[in-house]
Amino acid sequence: MTTLSELATPYTPNWCPGCGNMSLWAAFKNAAVQEGWDNTNTALAAGIGCHGHIVNFTKITSLEGLHGRPIPVATGIKLSDHKLNVFAFTGDGDCLGEGGNHFIHACRRNHDITIVIHDNGLYALTTGQTSPVSPHGFVSKSTPQGNLDNPLWPLQLAIAAGATFVARGYAGHIKELTELFVKANNHKGISVLDVLQPCVTFNKVCTHETYQQNTYYLDGSHDKTDKEAAFIKSMEWGEKKIPLGVFYEVQQDTYESQLPQLKDKPLVMRSPVYEGTEKLLKGYI
């Protein structure tokens, strides 16, 4: 059993009041309490950006690494101890800018990890520049005349690259987001959870109001095993037309389950002293 107080660290979140990260963090902790994620069964990796601070406020063992690199770190953790629930917290800049290559390749590998994109549509920790998901024409400190780049759509990218679980949540809906965290972790394979979490300080376009007025949840009429339907839904974005929920989910063998050397137990539970290494040298006689 995990309790909320056990997840508390001596630090209070330093995110701005109203920041989407606050409720994202609340939803994650709720999911942890519900599912019993703690220091005996879970590890976190985070990148650099406002999102990365989450590890300082959540008492689950973590590695806060480099900008753009939480996904390979999470991959290494999972391959070494595949019994752990592994979460990679990342931002839209961290995941799709600096770490874009890692994201694409992680999607095609089906490691049993969950990638959580704290998606606020811009770079916030560096005080408001355009990010890979910022819309065309977006005015920011780095694009005062308007953004000339077209945005990347993380869900489209994830589905195209082969991810087996693709979902979107909104930080303001703590109950629904809690469920999405649970579903993403329970999925056997790579899970991509894009969380819309408004930056109240720098983003005047993607606000709580925008999402409260324009999001809706995919219902039973959406076939989440249909890749084409999922892709079409992932292209939907506009007034009253921002879908939330699970877009795509299919079962495939996880990467870890295909490694015979991980059948008995995780790598780190095995002795690193191997029998019969002398015979390797004898092959060179």
């Binding site: 690494g65 390979p72 770190v73 953790i77 070494s80 101890d81 790598l267």
Partner: peptide, 21 residues
């Protein structure tokens, strides 16, 4: 891995988790 950046970060993740990497 997909590149050397991933190579070192995967190895760091593995070592953090307790593997000789």
């Amino acid at each position: 891995p997909e590149d050397e950046i991933s190579a070192i970060n995967m190895s760091i993740g593995a070592s953090f988790a307790g593997a000789r990497a």
